[in-house]
Design a protein around this nucleic acid. Structure first.
Lengths: 206, 206
DNA sequence: GTCTATAATTCGATAGAC
DNA sequence: GTCTATCGAATTATAGAC
């Protein structure tokens, strides 16, 4: 089981600290999260944080790496499946991301910020470009089955349509906006709509 | 002229501080930006920051407000024009955003983070939902001219397709990725592509 | 492993001279 | 208006007892 998916922990002190850190880092970012907050949230003593993780920075690196791993794992499995069609993969990507982000809505902004601070941290792009999915796309373009375009657009559109609403989520939930439940419903609707939109994009003749 | 568009300043100390603050806050966020960094960047003394702006927080609020203003101004003018069609508005929104973000690529992440910390800061959503644009959309849906759907999806798709690449930009520019120039070219291509994609979305029958 | 107490540093802000 | 010097609070990290 991937680290972030495990809500219930084994109750060890180390896990308690990591869970608290994950929650707070995602909510407020690295700088705004204080070691004291993490200790309080975890219900442990401040000194234990350094005992287990040596420093706030090291703890942060661990959390980031685990989140990245979660993100990449989803992508890799779907994108390198040689038995599914392009459209199957789009549906799977969209559905999996929306399900994960519904559970951890702060993740996209957290990851984007982490990448900005240290761009070497992640290789999502490479994960896409070297994939079987991209091979399928390129062949389909060559065969004239989908509109000719820079394949990066396809990746940007799938990910953008899926993830952006979660990045913009705080904008919707403020006073006078929609409720968390309504937002969730909208995302479930989009789970079905996005693949159709992508399909019509791929088919569009210019 | 809107504040953020003015790169060349009048050279006053106040402007020098604001320019330095704008640059650093956008690059690194509020917490990670130190008042000493701002003073250095501006080439002035640390004490002057407080002399002009009283506190780091107040300075930040000013920068955020100016950026938000820039964003909203673009939207409002386009979205409330009663003489243009839906498709005209989509083209104008996409083109204006891409041009602005090409100049200030850090802005989306900065604004998203600012909204997350204080969701009351911005009313982009209301700007959309009360607009003439939305009236046109709703009428077109009623008339059966575009596919029936929650209009929020249309807004999310326009903004998501346009802005998301800039949020994800750091991911593309790292080692082994594409150059800044190639990214710029890709965005210019998207300026032409996105309106077509939106069009086919609106027309798609389910 | 866990705690208390504290060292060491950083940072925002201000006092006061010019 | 601008600078130097410094205060005071907050924060990370550690020493040392249990």
């Amino acid at each position: 089981m991937s680290p972030i998916a495990k809500i219930k922990t084994d109750g060890s002190t180390e896990e308690k600290i990591k869970d608290a850190a994950r929650k707070l880092f995602m909510q407020k970012g690295f700088e705004a999260t204080k070691t004291r907050d993490i200790a309080n949230e975890a219900g442990i003593n401040l000194a234990l944080l350094n005992y287990y993780f040596r420093s706030k920075e090291k703890l942060f690196e661990i959390i980031v790496k685990e989140n990245m791993g979660q993100f990449m794992e989803i992508i890799s499995n779907i994108v390198n499946n040689e038995k599914t069609t392009i459209q199957d993969k789009v549906e799977a990507l969209v559905a999996n991301y929306i399900d994960m982000l519904t559970q951890f809505p702060d993740m996209p902004l957290f990851i984007m910020n982490s990448i900005k601070v240290d761009p070497e941290r992640i290789k999502i792009r490479q994960r896409f470009s070297g994939s079987y999915f991209m091979k399928q796309i390129n062949e389909a373009i060559k065969a004239g089955k989908i509109a000719p375009m820079n394949p990066m657009n396809i990746m940007l559109n799938i990910v953008g349509l899926t993830i952006f609403p979660f990045v913009a989520r705080p904008m919707f939930l403020n006073k006078g906006g929609i409720t968390i439940e309504e937002f969730g419903t909208l995302m479930q609707e989009r789970k079905k709509l996005i693949p159709g939109w992508i399909k019509s994009m791929l088919e569009a003749k210019k």
